Simulated scan of single mutants.
Amino acid sequence: MLTPKLVTDVVERALAEDCPWGDATVAASIPTDLDFQANLVAREPGLFAGGAVFGETFHQIDPDIHVTNLVPDGTAFSAGDVLASLSGPAAGILTGERVALNFIQRLSGIATLTSLFVAHIGSVDSQARIADTRKTTPGLRALEKHAVSAGGGINHRFSLSDAIMLKDNHLAALGATADSELTEAIQRVKATVGHTTSIIVEVDRLEQIEPVVAAGVTGILLDNFSVEDLRTGVQVINGRCTTEASGGVQLDTVADIATTGVDVISVGAITHGASSLDLGLDAS
């Protein structure tokens, strides 16, 4: 997913935004022949993500900047740990500093929050996995989903092109407002696509489960169900398709949700609600 071209393109856009016609401060104050050394230092504990875009930022600014000892994505760190070292032209390092930090602070925040959700469900007897959603920053989805993977989560569909997911408004638009109409409506959709296309259907009531399963779907998304209803829903489905819990999942509720037997717990908050970590670049 995180291809070299994608990394190159996203860094190009970020640098074009931040220094469209150069860095006025650096041009006025930093000699072109001045070298500089700095360390990337963690101000708080967390889990690292974004090494590829961090390195690419400085490479695009000036290929003579060397990034060394960069920790791998997924590395846990403590406050005060050195996560990378830089050396080379001071002008380039100072120009690229903010963009590079913006990337890794954001992505490390996502990886760290994801790892907390993963740890919470790891504390109970469950086979559930934490998944992201499409609630990502426009233009940064691939980076943010990569950060989820670095944090121990799994990726849901990357885009609308990847799978069919029929939600309440899709079903309403199809006229399937009654539970008795669900099976036929879903089967009409199935008839229009190939056999390899996944079909996931969102339900918000226990009564919808049986007619949806009867249509032969790949998975059911149990949206905003109580823990008790999730447990009942999983029993009704009984392994006939993948089960996914979604809707308002929080750190203090995710372990209980995991004990219901669902296969996947999708959490929009791990991307749209993650706080950037405090990482800084210190002269060495």
Rank of each mutant, 00 (worst) to 15 (best):
T232G: 03
Q105T: 03
A283S: 15
A52P: 02
V10P: 01
C19D: 11
V82F: 00
I30P: 00
G247K: 08
A76C: 13
A269Y: 11
V7H: 06
T177W: 02
G109W: 05
V201P: 01
I121Y: 10
D35R: 04
I30S: 00
T25N: 05
A28L: 05
A178D: 09
V234K: 03
A79C: 12
S198G: 11
A255E: 11
V67K: 06
P138R: 10
H146F: 12
H59M: 14
F36I: 02
G92R: 00
S161A: 15
F54T: 00
T196C: 14
R43P: 04
D263V: 08
A172P: 01
A38R: 01
T133A: 07
D73G: 04
V67G: 05
A42M: 02
L140V: 07
A191R: 12
A173M: 06
A14V: 09
P4I: 03
A191D: 10
T253K: 03
E207G: 11
S159L: 11
I164A: 06
S78C: 14
A269F: 11
G194S: 06
G219R: 03
I200A: 04
P72V: 13
S78G: 14
L221V: 11
T259H: 13
A274W: 00
S226P: 07
V193R: 09
G50V: 01
S266V: 10
L113T: 00
E44N: 13
I130Y: 01
A245N: 08
K145P: 15
G151C: 11
R231I: 11
D62N: 13
S275L: 12
T196A: 15
N69S: 15
A269H: 12
I257H: 11
N169V: 03
F158G: 09
G22K: 00
L143P: 13
